[in-house]
Design a binder for these strands. Structure first.
Length: 773
DNA sequence: GCTCAGGGCATTTTT
DNA sequence: TGCCCTGAGC
């Protein structure tokens, strides 16, 4: 019989076999969500439903891939292959490519990533004569993205008084014009940004009923993963595509909705029952992942939330250990404590490195833990930070590919027209861009038809340089037609000179850049081989379509196997680890409680959910750690643990601190400072524990300016060795003192100074702020 | 066209 | 801190 059904509990079983009509599957943390979703699809296939009539939407490529693999295992490779399964963006990008004509876009349209969007917005701000100190590209991009996600097109934006009022209050009344111009220029470049993929799909289905009809005919079943993370645009598309037979199945967990900042609407899942009154609801409440303690503690955190679908998540596993709360005095100590716990539990219970995860709120918090792990030689891997595809060398080469496929792509052109250097500078580029705007066309169409008698005042030499560039791209276009993606891209990499240039750069950065290019080419080779095997099109344009929607998380490296994982709570969603440290739990790192920020009930509840997500990643043991003081952005903050920790019933907690004694000793040295300042007060830099200061004021004028990034230190102006023994100096905190001795060399000059009232101190001059009296 | 000092600025993130 | 941008100076 259908043996895969045997592996399911009652709720899961129901959710798998009741395939008709609208269904809401509430999948609590660790309740076997993926299993239910994949088996439901497999079940449909076994019932004789054709795979090409099933549309399954996810948020990440990884989720789509994993699900496809699991379905293939149950229902067979062939079946899985014909499913319409992928991310919202990739599926709709595919549909838009097929239906490009009615929208007036070329089928080879480029997909702009966030960096392209931002760069274009910057250009527009400049060309409109606006001040980019006021109109910050990031903020403007955020406003435009938000508008698009809510299907507000430029005209509507300009005519909606509430929106204009917000812009006005932000002192950016011209965003509406920027938006209009942005849309126009994207169109001229034959480009869509990420939000367009959703927006244009909505417009496509709204304005072209025949097209909608075609897809309604095509898809008999629509399934959506992580429904709580859908934004308005996604919500509407899903609604439209399932409007015919209402075979819509959404899976999600309102308790794990933590993406409101990027437009996710928890209401979508909360209101499902109203949208589809005839719906069935399935609650997967048994948690197979965590101990009872962890599940109960997590439940108790979100119990206070008003906005939620009632459910009783429970675990039948053993009760397990209480959650350990570690309070450290400084962030360094926090790192130390975490590493100490890792070593201790490893010795005792023989965990692997990969059984541990360190979760934090912001990527910037990783550093302390990296250092602590490195000191103990514990291998770790970090998620987040600069993604592979965001690296300069990768983006440069990809820009050549983009130009080759869609030469109208202005952002790509601007990136490479002078890289490698061709002597086409900023002034020339500006002239070209203005000409393109005036002509309502792309830069390419201007330079393609340049002759020496051009109207835009370019001299002969420049025209020659530009036409050489045009030749290069045209040459690439020819060789792309004649080669598969791998051979085309390899030739492009060689002929542009990028490969040689990076090969000749023997600095560590240069070597790594060269390796990255090689890695990209290897990836393309894989793509080409794969295309050959499956019979799918393997041209460069096909690769480019894939790569635009690819991210770092899609490349798991073999050498990353047995390592401690460091990541943000957000990126840990969907993962599980035997042991989880939730670190940096100070109040002021939780933004809903940060000073000066509006506290809304929504924000508060989302913070609880974030806390919930963090805790439910743990299978066996969990720790909450925080530091009482943290050095951050040049200030020393005094902190207290997050209030959510206080909301937790102590019955789940073990607050005994493994290093209580040491901590007490150390506390004394900070005591006076802590007493003198209430929580959250910022104080001047302390003398110790600071890695560097930017400037030193000696004698009232800047003598030394020190910049120290991770690998280099540089000095300008005069030398701090101006400070001589015998001088009377004034220090910010220790007051007046007399220099006794100077030793060492730049940048490590040490001064021994006797301070009245503070005794003798030895200061490293690059850290000390001194005034010569 | 390139380098470098100085200023300004900081969530969370997928596509 | 640390990173990115800009403008000055070469």
């Amino acid at each position: 019989m259908l043996d895969y059904l045997q592996e399911l509990n009652k709720a899961q079983h129901e959710a798998v076999i009741r395939t008709e009509g609208p269904a809401l599957i509430i999948a609590g943390a660790g309740s076997g969500k993926t299993r239910v979703l994949t088996y439901r699809i497999a079940h449909l296939l076994k019932q004789g439903v054709r795979p090409s009539t099933i549309l399954a939407l996810t948020f990440t490529n990884k989720a789509a891939r994993e699900m496809k693999e699991r379905i293939a295992a149950v229902a067979g490779e062939k079946m899985a292959r014909y499913l319409w399964m992928g991310t919202f963006h990739s599926i709709f990008a595919r549909i838009l490519r097929a239906e490009h004509e009615v929208l007036g876009y070329p089928s080879n349209y480029t997909i702009y990533d966030s960096a392209d969007s931002k760069s274009l917005i910057k250009t527009i701000i400049k060309s409109l004569g606006l001040d980019d100190k006021i109109y910050k590209p990031n903020v403007v991009a955020g406003r435009i993205s938000k508008a698009k996600n809510n299907l507000i097109v430029p005209n509507v934006y300009a005519n909606t008084s509430e929106i204009r009022l917000i812009d006005k209050n932000m002192r950016m009344p011209a965003i509406s014009e920027i938006y209009k111009e942005y849309v126009k220029r994207c169109f001229l470049s034959g480009a869509m940004d990420f939000d367009d993929l959703l927006l244009k799909t909505n417009i496509l289905f709204r304005d072209h009923p025949l097209v909608l009809e075609k897809y309604l005919e095509r898809f008999d079943y629509v399934l959506v993963d992580e429904y709580q993370d859908t934004n308005y645009a996604q919500y509407l598309i899903v609604k439209k595509l399932s409007s015919k037979n209402k075979n819509l199945c959404v899976v999600g967990d309102d308790a794990q909705s933590i993406y409101s900042f990027r437009g996710a609407r928890i209401e979508n899942i909360l209101n499902f029952k109203n949208d589809y009154p005839e719906h069935k609801i399935f609650k997967l409440e048994q948690n197979y992942r965590s101990t009872q303690t962890i599940v109960n503690a997590a439940n108790s955190i979100i119990a206070k939330n008003k906005k939620q679908i009632p459910k009783k998540v429970f675990s039948k596993k053993e009760e397990g250990n209480p959650i350990k709360v570690l309070s450290a005095l400084t962030d360094n100590e926090e790192g130390f404590l975490v590493v100490q716990e890792i070593t201790e539990t490893q010795l005792r219970d023989h965990y692997k490195h990969s059984d541990y995860a360190i979760l934090y709120r912001t990527n910037a918090q990783s550093r302390i833990f990296e250092e602590a792990l490195r000191k103990r030689n514990i291998p770790y891997k970090i998620y987040g930070g600069l993604s592979f595809y965001q690296r300069k060398e990768i983006k440069d080469l990809l820009a050549y590919f983009r130009m080759t496929i869609n030469p109208a792509d202005n952002e790509a052109l601007k990136r490479i027209i002078n890289y490698p250097a061709r002597g086409i500078g900023a002034t020339t580029l500006m002239k070209l861009e203005n000409a393109a705007i005036a002509n309502e066309s792309s830069i390419w169409s201007i330079i393609e038809n340049l002759d020496s008698a051009n109207q835009i005042g370019l001299n002969k030499g420049t025209v020659t340089k530009i036409s050489k560039f045009v030749d290069t791209i045209q040459n690439f276009q020819t060789l792309t037609k004649e080669n598969d993606a791998y051979n085309a891209s390899k030739k492009i990499a060689e002929e542009t000179g990028i490969l040689v240039e990076l090969y000749n750069d023997k600095s560590p950065e240069g070597v790594s850049r060269y390796e990255n290019i090689q890695e990209l080419l290897n990836g393309i080779q894989e793509f080409s081989i794969n295309a050959l095997e499956t019979g799918e099109p393997g041209g460069l344009e096909n690769y480019l379509e894939d790569v635009a929607l690819l991210t770092d998380q899609d490349t798991e490296k073999e050498e990353d196997r047995d390592k401690v994982t460091l990541m943000t709570v957000h990126s840990a969603k969907g993962l599980e680890f035997k042991n989880v440290f939730v670190v940096g739990m100070e109040e002021n790192l939780f933004p809903s409680q940060r000073q000066g920020e509006k506290q809304t009930l929504e924000a508060l509840e989302e913070e609880r959910r974030l806390f919930y997500v963090a805790l439910t990643r743990a299978q066996e043991n969990a720790w909450f750690t925080y530091a009482n003081q943290r050095y951050r952005w040049g200030n020393l903050d005094f902190c207290s643990p997050s209030r959510f920790l206080e909301e937790l019933d102590p019955v789940y907690l073990n607050q005994s601190n493994s290093n209580g004694l040491r901590q007490n000793e150390r506390k004394n040295s900070y005591q006076s400072e802590i007493e003198n300042h209430s929580r959250r007060m910022t104080r001047p830099k302390p003398m110790t524990g600071v890695n560097s200061v930017r400037q030193q004021n000696i004698l009232g004028k800047k003598l030394v300016s020190l910049r120290e990034s991770s690998n280099k230190a540089s000095f300008t102006g005069d030398d701090p060795s101006k400070i001589q023994p015998g001088m009377v100096v004034e220090h910010q905190r220790f007051g007046e003192g007399k220099v006794i001795n100077i030793e060492g060399e730049m940048p490590n000059i040490k001064a021994t100074i006797y301070f009245h009232g503070a005794g003798q101190k030895q200061l490293l001059l690059k850290f000390a702020k001194l005034k010569i009296k």
